[in-house]
């Protein structure tokens, strides 16, 4: 296991640009219908622009910023889901994700099948996955629903299972995206205990959140992103204070002050 003061994640001049479709559901039919009209149905989005930072193992990094700041995109790039457009990311250790969108390949399949498929897709051995499955099921504690198709789950059950999968994959680095609101009050306490446990075990956590309280409580380092750019980084208290002031005063005033 990596110990503190070893490099965990290094992000150098990271930029991520992608083309997203403007259409809700892109179809061949609509493409043919607008052929010759020269309408552009894709939009280029620069989600992350030239961001650099590094953290050592044992850091709990809070990432704050308004909607569309590029927080989730950056997290997905660290997880290896989105390759960078420019720049370089170096990740030391096993990464597990706890992303807002939850787990599941196929909602027709049971929770058990989805958990096992998820483990296999991450390149784990079958025996290892089967073994982990028991721990995951016990922690999620959703009883017989584990063997029911995931489409029958309530959103709380979904989140409980997602949380349980994320923290039980033995991550060296855990990426968390707004997932702390998992489940009911009892499960929240259990989740918080587990997070504390992970923090103490010198694990590295990157936490993207709109909830300033959880960032303030857990993080010992903080990044502030705005429209894809890194505004500032440092002590959580100071960064959050600056961010809050920015939100109150508004962007323009802040830009003026900078000048």
């Amino acid at each position: 296991m990596p110990t503190a003061s070893e490099l965990a994640v290094k992000v150098e001049h990271l930029s991520i640009t992608y083309r997203a479709s403007v259409e809700k559901v892109p179809t061949l039919k609509s493409a043919i219908k607008r052929a010759g009209r020269r309408e552009r149905m894709v939009k280029e989005i620069a989600a992350v622009r030239d961001v650099s930072w590094r953290i050592d193992h044992g850091t709990v990094l809070g990432v704050v910023g308004a909607n569309g700041a590029g927080k989730s995109t950056m997290l997905r790039a660290i997880a290896g889901i989105l390759p960078p457009t420019r720049g370089r990311i170096e990740v030391h250790g096993r990464v597990s994700t706890l992303l807002a969108l939850g787990v599941g390949f196929n909602s027709q399949l049971t929770g058990r099948e989805n958990v096992i498929l998820g483990g296999l897709a991450q390149g784990k051995a079958e025996a290892e996955v089967e073994e982990k499955y028991e721990e995951i099921a016990a922690f999620a504690d959703i009883g017989e629903f584990m063997d029911m198709p995931m489409k029958s789950y309530s959103s709380g059950m979904y989140q409980r299972l997602a949380f349980s999968v994320g923290v039980h994959m033995d991550p060296d680095i855990l990426l968390v995206d707004e997932a702390l609101s998992a489940g009911d009050a009892a499960f929240k306490r259990k989740a918080a205990r587990k997070m504390d446990e992970l923090c103490r075990a010198a694990r590295t956590i990157i936490l993207v959140s709109h909830g300033m309280a959880s960032v303030r409580e857990m993080a010992n380092h903080c990044l502030w992103l705005h429209k894809g750019k890194l505004m500032d980084q440092g002590e959580p208290e100071a960064i959050i204070a600056a961010y809050m002031r920015f939100l109150e005063v508004g962007e323009d005033a802040f830009a003026m002050e900078d000048v």
């Binding site: 290896g80 420019r86 720049g87 370089r88 170096e90 990740v91 030391h92 990464v95």
Partner: peptide, 26 residues
């Protein structure tokens, strides 16, 4: 960390003392 850096190729996961290293590049 230095050892790890020396052995990296884009996207390749190498194990240094049991710690997998991933490098993501365009």
């Amino acid at each position: 960390v230095l050892d790890a850096e020396a052995s990296q190729v884009a996207g390749r996961a190498g194990a240094v003392e049991g710690v997998p290293v991933h490098v993501y590049e365009p």
